[in-house]
Write a protein that binds this DNA or RNA. Structure first.
Lengths: 211, 211
DNA sequence: GTCTATATATAGATAGAC
DNA sequence: GTCTATCTATATATAGAC
């Protein structure tokens, strides 16, 4: 096939297909061949749009960060409400694409959406009255909790084979039933942890204001 | 070479070398060929000790879980002290081997050390008076926070090139200096988050006891 | 901007000699 | 229990025709 009238591919089409592939079968399933097949083109055609596979992966990762809502920081509510809403949106975006979490947990690098997110969180906290050092730590610890929440289901990690636990793990007698309640357990743990974290931070903020 | 008098390899020697390789260059660097070279044997020799590469990887991952101290749960101090000490030991073990975190965050599976850990944490919380449902959530949310903390450095994720931030990210003017203080930032964030979490959980525990 | 053909590297795993 | 030889599959990427 020669050059088509209108291009078959675009960076966006490629990124969308690549993300779908990663979501379905994991990062290691993202090969240029498979991606090209999915897009009904030949492998080398992709190199007209991305110089290397790494450049493509970067775009895929940042597209996930682009799904995170940052609007709550503009409206300047209190820091606690903004942080809660942001955390939920952030987790939802990551949990929809768990296989990209290990990559994006390496930090923003030069990816615009990731940098925009860091900028918004830090700006909100400083504006609310947190000292810059503390604001940095809060940004970090929130990312720790959220990426950890999206990296893997807690409930689904326990095999459903009841006999596995019986003899050796006295307290795990009901662990084989965790997978059934996967969503409730995982979301309950996230919400409990989020509120506990915010309560703990609020205690520190009160102390700060009194001094 | 024929069968040697004393075996050149053992499961333990292989696991230790494999972990060193993963620590140095990441999970994808763990190939049977490279591992064999590192051990001064030929590739296929490894298959006398592990049936598949997956079986080997499982052993590597569980060896990291074996580094986590669980002694604090036996002495039955208050749950808060035990949880704090355990969290620090857990994070230290994982942070020493960040490349295995995405695998072990998938849950315990059938790995004995991982199951032992889950059993100890859950048992401690229930014994301290937490309802079983709450204890499950606390085990989950602690794992979220700890794996997230060990998955990647927050500080090291920001490029040191000052010009990157200047125009587009008004609040990140000092972000290029984060990498310098990497350890202080990452450990400070972990400690702050850990104490905030424990404070928030303690609030809930008090409420529980009053009712 | 897409194609076919291909270069080059590397992977996990098996067969069978010793 | 280790070896050599090899099978089979798959990867990223380039050259050059159209």
């Amino acid at each position: 096939m020669a050059r088509p009238r209108t291009p078959l591919l675009s960076r966006e089409r490629i990124v969308v297909a690549a993300l779908a592939l990663v979501d379905a079968d994991g990062l290691e399933a993202l090969s240029t061949r498979r991606l090209a097949t999915e897009l009904s083109v030949s492998g080398p055609s992709l190199y007209n749009h991305f110089a290397t596979k790494d450049e493509l992966l970067d775009a895929v990762v940042d597209s996930v960060m682009g799904e995170v809502d940052l609007g709550m920081f503009a409206d300047a509510l209190d820091w606690r409400t903004a942080l809660r809403d942001w955390a939920r949106s952030y987790r939802a975006a990551l949990a929809a694409h768990p296989h990209v979490v290990p990559v994006l947990a390496q930090g923003p690098g030069r990816r615009p959406n990731a940098l925009r997110l860091a900028d918004a969180v830090f700006g909100c906290l400083v504006q609310a009255g947190w000292p810059r050092g503390q604001a940095t730590r809060i940004g970090a610890l929130m990312r720790y909790f959220i990426t950890g929440s999206a990296l893997g289901s807690f409930a689904a990690g326990f095999p459903e084979d009841e006999r596995l636990y019986a003899d050796d793990y006295p307290h795990l007698g009901e662990a084989h039933r965790l997978a059934e309640h996967r969503r409730a357990v995982d979301e309950g743990a996230f919400e409990t942890g989020l509120e506990a974290l915010l309560d703990g931070l609020a205690l520190r903020f009160e102390r700060l204001e009194r001094s």
